[in-house]
C-alpha cells in the first residue's frame, strides 16, 4: 500500500490530505459541537420576543449596545455573569455588537423591568441623567411585525430543528416549553396574550389602548425581548 502510494505522487497527496483532515476533524469537531450546544436554561424565543428582536435589529440597537460579556471582573461586576457560546444557540444572527456606546444588554432582563424600559425608551435622560441615548417614541405607536416573527419561528424550527413545543431543561432541573403556534392566526393570538401580560405592568394609555384593541406596539415586543435577556 505505502509502496504503491510512494510511486503515485497525486494519490500520495490525496492520502496526506485525508489523513490530516481526519485528524483535524477528530480534534476540532467534538469541541465545537460541545461549545455550540445550547447551555442549560437557554430557551428559543417566543413569537413576541422574536418580533421584539426584529425591532431591536431594525433600530440598530446593536450599534451602541453589545450582547457579549467578556470574562473580566470589571465586566461581570457591571453586567452579570460572562457569556457562554451556547447561550447564542438560538440567536440568528447573534447580536454581539462591536462597540459599547451604551451598556451591554446580555443580561439586562435581570436588572431592569418592564416599567423601567417604558420610562427609559420614552425619555432616556429622564431616568438616567446625562444619558445620550435618543428617545424611541415611535415604538409606542408603530405596530410590531408578528407575521415575520412567526415566519422566522417556523423556518428555524424546520431548517435548524429549534426545539419549539419540546421540553427544554432549565438550570433548576425543571423543564420549560416554548410554544410555537400551528397557524399564523394562532401565533398572533399567542403573541397578543403575551403582550397583555407585559402591558399590565405599563402605564402609557395609548399602548394599553392599542393592545386592548388587538394590536401589538413595537415597544411591547421590544420589552418582551429585553426581559428575555437573562
Amino acid at each position: 500500500m505505502f509502496h504503491w502510494l510512494e510511486k503515485h505522487p497525486f494519490f500520495f497527496a490525496v492520502a496526506v490530505f485525508v489523513t490530516i483532515a481526519f485528524a483535524g476533524l477528530v480534534e476540532i469537531l467534538p469541541n465545537f459541537a460541545e461549545a455550540s450546544r445550547p447551555t442549560i436554561g437557554t430557551k428559543p424565543y417566543s413569537t413576541l420576543e422574536l418580533a421584539g428582536r426584529h425591532v431591536y435589529i431594525k433600530n440598530s440597537c446593536n450599534a451602541c449596545h453589545s450582547q457579549l460579556i467578556r470574562p473580566f471582573k470589571s465586566e461581570t461586576d457591571r453586567y452579570g455573569a460572562y457569556s457562554l457560546s451556547g447561550e447564542y444557540a438560538y440567536d440568528r444572527p447573534f447580536l454581539w455588537g462591536s462597540k459599547r456606546t451604551g451598556p451591554d444588554l446580555m443580561r439586562i432582563g435581570n436588572v431592569r423591568t418592564t416599567d423601567w424600559h417604558e420610562n427609559h425608551m420614552w425619555d432616556p435622560a429622564g431616568v438616567v441623567p446625562g444619558s445620550i441615548m435618543p428617545a424611541y417614541r415611535w415604538m409606542f405607536a408603530n405596530e410590531a411585525d408578528v407575521d415575520t416573527a412567526y415566519a422566522e419561528q417556523v423556518t428555524v424550527n424546520k431548517v435548524f430543528n429549534v426545539p419549539y413545543n419540546k421540553p427544554i431543561p432549565m438550570k433548576d432541573g425543571s423543564t420549560e416549553t416554548v410554544p410555537m403556534a400551528a397557524s399564523l392566526d394562532a401565533a398572533k393570538a399567542e403573541a397578543l396574550a403575551d403582550a397583555k401580560v407585559i402591558v399590565a405592568d405599563m402605564k402609557n394609555q395609548d399602548v394599553k389602548d392599542m393592545v386592548a384593541s388587538g394590536k401589538i406596539p413595537e415597544i411591547v415586543a421590544l420589552i418582551a425581548y429585553l426581559n428575555s435577556l437573562k
Binding site: G80, N110, V111, T113, T114, D115, W116
Partner: peptide
C-alpha cells in the same frame, strides 16, 4: 403598585 424591582444578585 409602582412597578417591579428585580433582585440584585450581582
Amino acid at each position: 403598585v409602582i412597578g417591579a424591582m428585580p433582585a440584585f444578585d450581582l
